[in-house]
Amino acid sequence: MIAEERLPRVVIAEDDDDMRSVLCELVSGLGVQVAEASSGGDLVVLLTDDRPVDLLITDVRMPWMTGFQVALSARNSGIAVPIIIVTAFPDDTLRAQVENLGSAVLLAKPFRPEELLSLVRERLPRPAASA
């Protein structure tokens, strides 16, 4: 199958450069392809190009569109990719909204590297062959 022939592709959206590089470094360690977006607008562009996306990791507060707004639009357009939403303030409203999205999970900042990594591993379609 085609999926087995390629590396899983993870899209990471985060407007803070330091945080984005941290996320990228951690996730790349799992032997996956990583695509970066630094704003809601960039993320929309990445999600709408023809290349497949296996997992989306996004911050909430970003310029142009929040990560949650992008995720919601993605779901409305029929994109069923698993989503990890990273936020510094996981209040009840956001929690409920994320639950309604389906196959999405909240990760509170600051987090330990293992917390993120285990969430990513659980959501990747098939453990990638170790790099």
Binding site: D16, D18, M19, V22, E25, L26, D59, T87, A88, F89, A108, K109, P110, F111, R112, P113
Partner: peptide
């Protein structure tokens, strides 16, 4: 504070 703390933690 969440973002810089997260970065520092990692």
């Amino acid at each position: 504070l969440g973002t810089p703390l997260g970065v520092a933690l990692v």
